[in-house]
Design a protein around this nucleic acid. Structure first.
Lengths: 201, 201
DNA sequence: GGCTGTTTTAAATAAATGATTAAATATTAT
DNA sequence: ATAATATTTAATCATTTATTTAAAACAGCC
């Protein structure tokens, strides 16, 4: 084998370019030439290192799915933390992650819709067996607590999805958007708590 | 001019097929052949009636943007209704519309992101000048009430976006998803009210 | 029926794009 | 240093796909 440094370097350059372009434009809209250009490399190298556009895409997609779901699952499954602590942790860490990866949610939602494979690691099951889920059920045995999980994720993720719309509002420039989202770090846990104790008439 | 009925019929057949395919797959992933096939018509007719794939797409896109934003803007601008009534109306009507058009939100978000044009009718400005916005400010002058608008839309729209994920959960079959969303019609207004009266520490 | 303009069709064209090849260059091992 | 191996490049191929064309089918009208 040749120089390991260089091997990793070009292969990783391609993957990094693929991450950027695929998550920004999705599978169908990205051309292999876009990735090669983003990486500053010859087009043929994509097929040399990864056999095809599809194979490269699958690698990136799996990575991104793990990035999207992994953090949620891990936090919700911690046994020692309280409900409030989990909400706080999700809100904080997930907002930070999404601000650093604003293309991630739309990418994941789009590609799952195009190709609703059964998740290899059964994300959904792990969610339903999480300690968070059990803790919620203990507080609100009267309703399907999946509503609350969805509300929490909605309030965190949707504003990121809507960023291109929100940023067209006069009052919002690039910087303001980040500030606006950061404000939510404090408020979402409070709102969540209020919702959780809302009586259904 | 020849038979008007037939003119409208084929032209409308193409538009209807284009609505279905474009909203399901987005611009890049749909081939003109897909639309022709969906319409049951010869491929060349697309270019005969509409000059190009792009021109046809723009027509559908404008339609869909109006469908997505129009109802919100109209309800939020009614002068006579109370805050509670507006929340109730948005929740009810918008959930119904989205259940009938589940591909709409992802389509709109994707295409706006690809091409963040300034909206011709200034959706964002109309939102900031709506009576709903003023009513919210009257109740909560202490914080940026755009947070509340976003929370409301998040809780309504995000579950539809996440349907392909949600429906992989064992407990959710197609029918259950609709029931689940319908339950939210009653709860979202109550949750919203709770959030609105949440004190920030 | 025959003329006129419109609509539809099948086939041709041209551009875009994923993939391959063969030669050139660089790296490693002997 | 030299052979062997691995990587990179430019050019090309093959396929897909949007668009055009030219002729056929059709409708309305005198």
């Amino acid at each position: 084998m040749a120089n390991k440094d260089k091997d990793i370097s070009t292969e990783e350059k391609i993957k990094e370019a693929a991450r950027v372009v695929f998550t920004k434009k999705g599978f169908a809209a990205t051309r292999t030439r876009d990735i090669a250009e983003e990486a500053g490399l010859n087009l043929a190298l994509l097929n040399y290192y990864f056999r095809s556009k599809e194979k490269l895409f699958h690698i990136i997609m799996e990575e991104k799915f793990e990035q999207f779901f992994g953090m949620i699952i891990r936090i919700l499954n911690v046994a020692e933390t309280s409900l409030e602590e989990k909400v706080q942790a999700i809100t904080n860490d997930y907002i930070d992650m999404l601000l650093a990866n604003p293309d991630l949610p739309l990418f994941v939602l789009s590609e799952i819709k195009n190709n609703p494979i059964i998740f290899s690691d059964r994300v959904s099951d792990r969610l339903l067996q999480s300690t968070f889920y059990q803790q919620l059920r203990a507080v609100r045995p009267d309703i399907n607590v999946f509503h609350f999980i969805l509300n929490l994720l909605s309030m965190i993720i949707f504003p990121i999805l809507a960023q291109p719309i929100i940023c067209q509002i006069e009052a919002f420039k690039k910087d303001d958007f980040k500030k606006f989202i950061m404000q939510r770090k404090k408020m979402i846990p409070l709102w969540f708590k209020s919702m959780l104790s809302t009586e259904l008439v």
